[in-house]
């Protein structure tokens, strides 16, 4: 599988990373080099193998239903690049 320029633009869009048109060919080459190298996995037949998500081999622990957090409005908003009163602000979103 090899990426064409349109796919590079599409995944950059999905990842919300702006690309200048001039960057597309270089990225395309780099990504294709990486993906081409990854193709070596095709040597393996893994049809019957159960996937492993992570190395932690245990069941999920659960916490009790108690309010132990929150009430931190100032700290939560303190790093905001645009704060409007008690809200985060972003350019108007049209639904």
């Amino acid at each position: 599988m090899s990426l064409d320029p349109a796919t590079v633009r599409r995944i950059a869009r999905l990842a919300r990373i702006h690309l200048d048109e001039a960057e597309v060919p270089r990225l395309q080459d780099e990504l294709n080099a990486i993906l081409g190298w990854i193709e070596q996995l095709n040597e393996l037949d893994v049809a019957d193998i159960a996937p492993l998500t992570g190395p932690a081999q245990m069941a999920l622990k659960m916490r009790e239903d108690r309010v132990t957090d929150g009430g931190l409005r100032e700290a939560v908003l303190a790093n905001a690049p645009d704060r409007a009163g008690d809200f985060f602000a972003v350019p108007k979103v049209v639904e």
Binding site: V8, I11, L14, A15, L27, L35, L41, V46, P51, T53
Partner: peptide
């Protein structure tokens, strides 16, 4: 970008799922 691609529709099985299986091996 690589990560977005390997998870995207149509490529998940060929890349991400496969990698998880090799990880099991």
């Amino acid at each position: 970008l690589i990560g977005t691609y390997v998870l995207s529709a149509g490529y998940y099985d060929a890349y991400y799922l496969k990698a998880q299986k090799v990880r099991a091996l």
